[in-house]
Amino acid sequence: MAIRVDYAVRETLNNIRRQMFMSVAVILVVAVSLYLVGGVLLLRFAVNRAFALQTANVEVTVFLARDVTPDLRDQIEKDLGQMPEVSRVTYESKQEAYRRFKDLFRDRPELVRNTSPDALPESFRVKLRDPKQFEVVRDRLQGRPGIDQIRDERSFLKQFFRVVDDVGRIGWILVGLLTAAGALLIGTTIRLAIFARRREIGIMRLVGATNWFIRVPFMMEGVFHGLVGAGAALALLIATRPLFVKVASSLQALQLSVSYGDIARYGLVLLLAGVLIGGTGSLFGLRRFLDV
């Protein structure tokens, strides 16, 4: 026996109308928690992308000593190029380093003004076949004349990103708590609705309504709340993108970015999460109701 769709929809809307304030509260909680989920996801995504971008071409930077001679420099480049672990070597002059420096600190003109191109070191930017082989390369070059410092860009960046990760972890805990609160609130709302309509439900059972018939409108209510909350969270994310961009640009060195496309990418995830919260919440609310 199929449930008539118009009946289920009408019942769901009636339920929601009857508990307007409760519905709004539920939707707000879901919206806030999913907004945070979205925020954390977006930042994580941005961080991972920044990391991938910055290590795509360079895994090791070999800074040259200030007094390096052109001969020595050429020799180092040649040796690097011949190492089996190395896939590509790019030379960066003082001028190029300065250009990158200017771009990186374009928000801090006083820093740029006080730095001359000569203050920045020349370097070889090295891409490895296998990023894990950094130590082999370093050990081979360490202590050679003309080389000032050898830096593993990945581990250098990782230190930066670790901070972001810690922030993210706190975010996840918050998100977990809020999501649970949302689901529990949805469940409680449904319990209240069931209690308010216990006479009606009693009669439904009496005349032979199936349990699913009785449950479906309540479940739809939960899913509706979850979905609307997720929609609100998504709208909020889009509306507050400038804020994310600002946060991202304050960590200039990491070259983070958050585009509307990135938000859209997580839109579906958020909506799905909304449905999931609503569904599990209503199942929790209907739990005692699941057996006849």
């Binding site: 006479r199 009669i203 018939f213």
Partner: peptide, 20 residues
């Protein structure tokens, strides 16, 4: 065991409605 917010006809219809 009638529903006070529904009319007589609605009360009877309810029994048919909920069994589809």
């Amino acid at each position: 065991k009638l529903l006070p917010t529904k009319t007589v006809a609605e009360n009877v219809a309810f029994a048919l409605e909920v069994i589809g």
